[in-house]
Design a binder for these strands. Sequence first.
DNA 1: CGGAATCCAACTGGATACTG
DNA 2: CAGTATCCAGTTGGATTCCG
Lengths: 113, 113
Amino acid sequence: MNLMINTSECPIETVIHVLGGKWKPRICRHLIESTKRFSDLEKLIPAVSQKMLTQHLRDLEREGVIERTIHPVVPPKVEYALSDYGKTFIPVLEVMSIWGQNHIERKPEEPAS
Amino acid sequence: MNLMINTSECPIETVIHVLGGKWKPRICRHLIESTKRFSDLEKLIPAVSQKMLTQHLRDLEREGVIERTIHPVVPPKVEYALSDYGKTFIPVLEVMSIWGQNHIERKPEEPAS
DNA sequence: CGGAATCCAACTGGATACTG
DNA sequence: CAGTATCCAGTTGGATTCCG
Protein backbone atom coordinates (compact mmCIF):
# COMPACT_ATOMS: atom_id res chain seq x y z
CA MET A 1 0.00 0.00 0.00
CA ASN A 2 1.28 3.41 -0.93
CA LEU A 3 -0.71 6.33 0.38
CA MET A 4 1.88 8.89 -0.76
CA ILE A 5 2.11 10.37 2.70
CA ASN A 6 5.23 12.32 1.92
CA THR A 7 4.18 14.02 -1.28
CA SER A 8 2.44 17.34 -1.53
CA GLU A 9 -0.01 15.92 -4.03
CA CYS A 10 -2.69 13.84 -2.36
CA PRO A 11 -4.30 11.33 -4.71
CA ILE A 12 -7.34 10.95 -2.49
CA GLU A 13 -7.93 14.68 -2.68
CA THR A 14 -7.62 14.33 -6.42
CA VAL A 15 -10.53 11.92 -6.51
CA ILE A 16 -12.51 14.17 -4.20
CA HIS A 17 -11.73 17.02 -6.56
CA VAL A 18 -12.97 15.13 -9.61
CA LEU A 19 -16.20 14.10 -7.84
CA GLY A 20 -16.43 17.10 -5.59
CA GLY A 21 -19.41 18.99 -6.82
CA LYS A 22 -22.88 18.62 -5.51
CA TRP A 23 -24.16 16.69 -8.54
CA LYS A 24 -21.06 15.02 -9.98
CA PRO A 25 -21.56 11.64 -8.34
CA ARG A 26 -25.10 11.43 -9.69
CA ILE A 27 -24.02 12.58 -13.14
CA CYS A 28 -21.36 9.90 -13.22
CA ARG A 29 -23.74 7.21 -12.06
CA HIS A 30 -26.23 8.05 -14.78
CA LEU A 31 -23.57 8.18 -17.47
CA ILE A 32 -22.24 4.82 -16.34
CA GLU A 33 -25.65 3.41 -17.18
CA SER A 34 -25.69 4.88 -20.67
CA THR A 35 -25.04 7.91 -22.82
CA LYS A 36 -27.37 10.74 -21.92
CA ARG A 37 -28.53 13.99 -23.46
CA PHE A 38 -28.44 17.22 -21.47
CA SER A 39 -32.20 17.14 -21.09
CA ASP A 40 -32.10 13.51 -20.01
CA LEU A 41 -29.82 14.43 -17.14
CA GLU A 42 -32.08 17.31 -16.22
CA LYS A 43 -34.99 14.89 -15.96
CA LEU A 44 -32.96 12.30 -14.06
CA ILE A 45 -31.71 14.89 -11.60
CA PRO A 46 -34.69 17.22 -11.24
CA ALA A 47 -33.17 19.33 -8.48
CA VAL A 48 -30.11 20.41 -10.45
CA SER A 49 -30.06 23.82 -12.04
CA GLN A 50 -28.98 24.26 -15.65
CA LYS A 51 -26.04 26.29 -14.52
CA MET A 52 -24.66 23.63 -12.22
CA LEU A 53 -25.39 20.80 -14.61
CA THR A 54 -23.48 22.61 -17.32
CA GLN A 55 -20.63 23.51 -15.00
CA HIS A 56 -20.22 20.03 -13.59
CA LEU A 57 -20.39 18.45 -17.02
CA ARG A 58 -17.65 20.83 -18.16
CA ASP A 59 -15.57 19.94 -15.10
CA LEU A 60 -15.92 16.21 -15.73
CA GLU A 61 -15.10 16.74 -19.39
CA ARG A 62 -11.97 18.72 -18.52
CA GLU A 63 -10.85 15.90 -16.25
CA GLY A 64 -11.23 13.53 -19.17
CA VAL A 65 -13.87 11.44 -17.45
CA ILE A 66 -16.71 12.18 -19.87
CA GLU A 67 -17.03 13.11 -23.51
CA ARG A 68 -19.35 15.66 -25.05
CA THR A 69 -20.67 15.07 -28.54
CA ILE A 70 -22.50 17.78 -30.41
CA HIS A 71 -24.78 16.57 -33.18
CA PRO A 72 -25.16 19.40 -35.70
CA VAL A 73 -28.92 19.19 -36.05
CA VAL A 74 -31.85 21.38 -35.19
CA PRO A 75 -32.93 21.39 -32.50
CA PRO A 76 -29.45 21.00 -30.99
CA LYS A 77 -28.56 17.56 -29.68
CA VAL A 78 -25.70 17.12 -27.27
CA GLU A 79 -24.79 13.79 -25.80
CA TYR A 80 -22.62 13.03 -22.81
CA ALA A 81 -20.91 9.71 -22.34
CA LEU A 82 -18.23 8.19 -20.17
CA SER A 83 -14.90 8.25 -22.00
CA ASP A 84 -12.69 5.19 -22.15
CA TYR A 85 -10.61 6.80 -19.46
CA GLY A 86 -13.76 7.52 -17.48
CA LYS A 87 -14.56 3.83 -17.54
CA THR A 88 -11.43 3.21 -15.49
CA PHE A 89 -13.20 5.23 -12.83
CA ILE A 90 -16.10 2.77 -12.54
CA PRO A 91 -14.36 0.31 -10.20
CA VAL A 92 -13.42 3.18 -7.93
CA LEU A 93 -17.03 4.36 -7.82
CA GLU A 94 -18.15 0.79 -7.14
CA VAL A 95 -15.88 0.43 -4.13
CA MET A 96 -16.97 3.83 -2.84
CA SER A 97 -20.60 2.91 -3.46
CA ILE A 98 -20.38 -0.32 -1.51
CA TRP A 99 -18.78 1.31 1.51
CA GLY A 100 -21.20 4.20 1.28
CA GLN A 101 -24.21 1.89 1.24
CA ASN A 102 -22.94 0.15 4.34
CA HIS A 103 -22.27 3.51 5.96
CA ILE A 104 -25.81 4.69 5.28
CA GLU A 105 -27.25 1.53 6.81
CA ARG A 106 -24.92 1.82 9.78
CA LYS A 107 -26.44 5.05 11.04
CA PRO A 108 -30.21 4.86 10.45
CA GLU A 109 -30.82 8.32 11.85
CA GLU A 110 -28.78 11.39 12.59
CA PRO A 111 -30.09 13.45 15.47
CA ALA A 112 -31.69 16.42 13.76
CA SER A 113 -30.62 18.99 16.32
CA MET B 1 -22.73 -3.86 -9.68
CA ASN B 2 -25.35 -1.87 -7.84
CA LEU B 3 -25.01 1.87 -8.05
CA MET B 4 -28.39 2.50 -6.37
CA ILE B 5 -29.54 4.72 -9.21
CA ASN B 6 -33.12 4.68 -8.07
CA THR B 7 -32.69 5.64 -4.44
CA SER B 8 -32.60 9.15 -3.11
CA GLU B 9 -29.56 8.32 -1.00
CA CYS B 10 -26.38 8.25 -3.02
CA PRO B 11 -23.65 6.13 -1.46
CA ILE B 12 -20.93 7.85 -3.46
CA GLU B 13 -22.04 11.20 -2.10
CA THR B 14 -21.88 9.61 1.34
CA VAL B 15 -18.21 8.82 0.88
CA ILE B 16 -17.59 12.30 -0.47
CA HIS B 17 -19.37 13.66 2.58
CA VAL B 18 -17.23 11.66 5.00
CA LEU B 19 -14.03 12.78 3.25
CA GLY B 20 -15.32 16.11 2.07
CA GLY B 21 -13.39 18.62 4.07
CA LYS B 22 -10.22 20.25 2.95
CA TRP B 23 -8.00 18.26 5.32
CA LYS B 24 -9.92 15.04 5.94
CA PRO B 25 -8.10 12.91 3.39
CA ARG B 26 -4.75 13.90 4.88
CA ILE B 27 -5.98 13.33 8.42
CA CYS B 28 -7.19 9.85 7.47
CA ARG B 29 -3.93 8.99 5.74
CA HIS B 30 -1.88 9.96 8.75
CA LEU B 31 -4.13 8.06 11.15
CA ILE B 32 -3.91 4.99 8.93
CA GLU B 33 -0.19 5.05 9.57
CA SER B 34 -0.54 5.22 13.33
CA THR B 35 -2.30 6.84 16.24
CA LYS B 36 -1.53 10.53 16.45
CA ARG B 37 -1.86 13.31 18.97
CA PHE B 38 -3.49 16.60 18.09
CA SER B 39 -0.11 18.31 17.99
CA ASP B 40 1.30 15.52 15.83
CA LEU B 41 -1.34 16.19 13.23
CA GLU B 42 -0.64 19.90 13.42
CA LYS B 43 3.01 19.23 12.66
CA LEU B 44 2.20 16.74 9.91
CA ILE B 45 -0.25 19.14 8.27
CA PRO B 46 1.37 22.53 8.88
CA ALA B 47 -1.11 24.49 6.80
CA VAL B 48 -4.19 23.45 8.74
CA SER B 49 -5.64 25.80 11.31
CA GLN B 50 -6.54 24.58 14.79
CA LYS B 51 -10.14 25.37 14.10
CA MET B 52 -10.36 23.22 10.98
CA LEU B 53 -8.28 20.40 12.44
CA THR B 54 -10.60 20.23 15.43
CA GLN B 55 -13.71 20.47 13.28
CA HIS B 56 -12.63 17.79 10.84
CA LEU B 57 -11.55 15.47 13.63
CA ARG B 58 -14.98 15.92 15.22
CA ASP B 59 -16.65 15.19 11.91
CA LEU B 60 -14.65 12.01 11.37
CA GLU B 61 -15.35 10.96 14.94
CA ARG B 62 -19.08 11.51 14.49
CA GLU B 63 -19.00 9.34 11.38
CA GLY B 64 -17.39 6.61 13.46
CA VAL B 65 -14.24 6.55 11.37
CA ILE B 66 -11.86 7.67 14.11
CA GLU B 67 -11.71 7.46 17.89
CA ARG B 68 -10.67 10.16 20.29
CA THR B 69 -8.99 9.15 23.53
CA ILE B 70 -8.41 11.68 26.29
CA HIS B 71 -5.65 10.79 28.70
CA PRO B 72 -6.36 12.59 31.98
CA VAL B 73 -2.90 13.96 32.53
CA VAL B 74 -1.31 17.35 32.61
CA PRO B 75 -0.53 18.67 30.14
CA PRO B 76 -3.57 17.27 28.32
CA LYS B 77 -2.94 14.38 25.98
CA VAL B 78 -5.48 13.48 23.35
CA GLU B 79 -4.93 10.73 20.85
CA TYR B 80 -6.72 10.08 17.60
CA ALA B 81 -6.84 6.66 16.01
CA LEU B 82 -8.71 4.88 13.29
CA SER B 83 -11.59 2.90 14.78
CA ASP B 84 -12.18 -0.73 13.81
CA TYR B 85 -14.93 0.57 11.60
CA GLY B 86 -12.61 3.18 10.20
CA LYS B 87 -10.25 0.40 9.17
CA THR B 88 -12.92 -0.87 6.81
CA PHE B 89 -12.42 2.45 5.04
CA ILE B 90 -8.77 1.75 4.23
CA PRO B 91 -9.40 -0.38 1.12
CA VAL B 92 -11.68 2.34 -0.21
CA LEU B 93 -8.98 4.95 0.30
CA GLU B 94 -6.45 2.65 -1.36
CA VAL B 95 -8.55 2.27 -4.49
CA MET B 96 -9.15 6.01 -4.60
CA SER B 97 -5.47 6.65 -4.03
CA ILE B 98 -4.37 4.41 -6.88
CA TRP B 99 -6.75 6.01 -9.36
CA GLY B 100 -5.84 9.44 -8.06
CA GLN B 101 -2.13 8.82 -8.53
CA ASN B 102 -2.74 7.74 -12.09
CA HIS B 103 -4.92 10.76 -12.66
CA ILE B 104 -2.24 13.13 -11.39
CA GLU B 105 0.32 11.56 -13.71
CA ARG B 106 -2.11 11.69 -16.60
CA LYS B 107 -2.26 15.49 -16.70
CA PRO B 108 1.22 16.81 -15.91
CA GLU B 109 0.15 20.42 -16.17
CA GLU B 110 -3.07 22.36 -16.14
CA PRO B 111 -3.00 25.56 -18.16
CA ALA B 112 -2.83 28.22 -15.51
CA SER B 113 -5.12 30.68 -17.26
C1' DC C 1 -32.47 22.19 -26.97
C1' DG C 2 -28.62 23.44 -24.65
C1' DG C 3 -26.70 26.54 -23.03
C1' DA C 4 -24.38 31.65 -21.10
C1' DA C 5 -24.61 35.65 -17.93
C1' DT C 6 -25.76 37.90 -13.81
C1' DC C 7 -26.91 38.46 -9.13
C1' DC C 8 -27.33 36.73 -4.62
C1' DA C 9 -27.60 33.52 -0.37
C1' DA C 10 -25.31 29.94 2.06
C1' DC C 11 -21.55 27.51 3.35
C1' DT C 12 -16.43 26.66 4.05
C1' DG C 13 -12.37 27.73 5.68
C1' DG C 14 -8.62 31.20 7.47
C1' DA C 15 -6.84 34.58 11.06
C1' DT C 16 -6.79 35.89 15.49
C1' DA C 17 -7.56 35.93 20.34
C1' DC C 18 -8.62 33.55 24.47
C1' DT C 19 -8.90 29.23 27.91
C1' DG C 20 -8.98 24.85 31.18
C1' DC D 1 -1.56 20.76 25.03
C1' DA D 2 -5.73 20.91 23.00
C1' DG D 3 -8.85 23.16 22.31
C1' DT D 4 -13.20 27.28 21.85
C1' DA D 5 -15.06 31.70 20.05
C1' DT D 6 -15.48 35.33 16.86
C1' DC D 7 -15.07 37.64 12.78
C1' DC D 8 -14.16 37.80 7.97
C1' DA D 9 -13.00 36.43 2.94
C1' DG D 10 -13.56 33.27 -0.67
C1' DT D 11 -16.08 29.78 -2.89
C1' DT D 12 -20.17 27.12 -4.15
C1' DG D 13 -24.45 26.73 -5.70
C1' DG D 14 -29.43 28.52 -6.63
C1' DA D 15 -32.71 31.70 -9.20
C1' DT D 16 -33.53 34.24 -12.95
C1' DT D 17 -33.05 36.07 -17.49
C1' DC D 18 -31.54 35.91 -22.14
C1' DC D 19 -29.60 33.59 -26.54
C1' DG D 20 -28.15 30.72 -31.09
